[in-house]
Computed example of a mutant assay.
Amino acid sequence: MSTIGYETWAVDLAEVGAVYPFQGHEFLMTLLGVAFWIGWHRIQFVREGRHLDKARHIGDPDKITKALERY
């Protein structure tokens, strides 16, 4: 069963044309992917920083220091 009208793929693909969606938009998709990747890491960096700031204020600093000195 074919959705593009070809009964067989035994043809010269250079004559077929695009065999994947969004052909011609590779550069735009790459830019969007990189922007998403950098944005995601920025969001995670900020959230993790907040979490670590909260964790620093929990507990007695002297007890934590003593516990860490044992090891």
Rank of each mutant, 00 (worst) to 15 (best):
A10T: 13
S2R: 06
Q23I: 09
Y71H: 11
I38H: 04
D62A: 09
D62W: 00
R47E: 06
R56E: 12
K54A: 14
Y20H: 05
T65N: 11
F22S: 08
E7L: 15
F45I: 12
Y20F: 10
G33S: 03
R70Y: 04
G39D: 03
L52T: 00
F45N: 03
H41K: 10
L28E: 02
T8W: 15
W37G: 05
A55I: 07
I43H: 02
Y20C: 06
L28F: 05
K54W: 14
L13F: 15
E48V: 08
R42G: 13
F27V: 15
E15I: 11
G33F: 01
D60I: 12
Q44G: 08
F27A: 11
D53K: 06
G49W: 04
H51Q: 07
L28C: 05
F27D: 02
M29N: 01
D53L: 13
R42K: 09
M29A: 02
A14L: 14
G49T: 09
H25I: 10
G33H: 02
A67L: 14
G24M: 07
G5Y: 05
V34I: 03
Y6L: 11
R56H: 13
A67K: 15
L31D: 03
Y71G: 12
G49K: 07
D62T: 00
G59P: 04
K54G: 12
W37N: 01
E7M: 15
V34N: 04
V46Y: 00
H51R: 10
G39W: 11
S2Q: 07
E69N: 12
P61V: 07
W9R: 12
D53N: 07
A14T: 09
A14S: 14
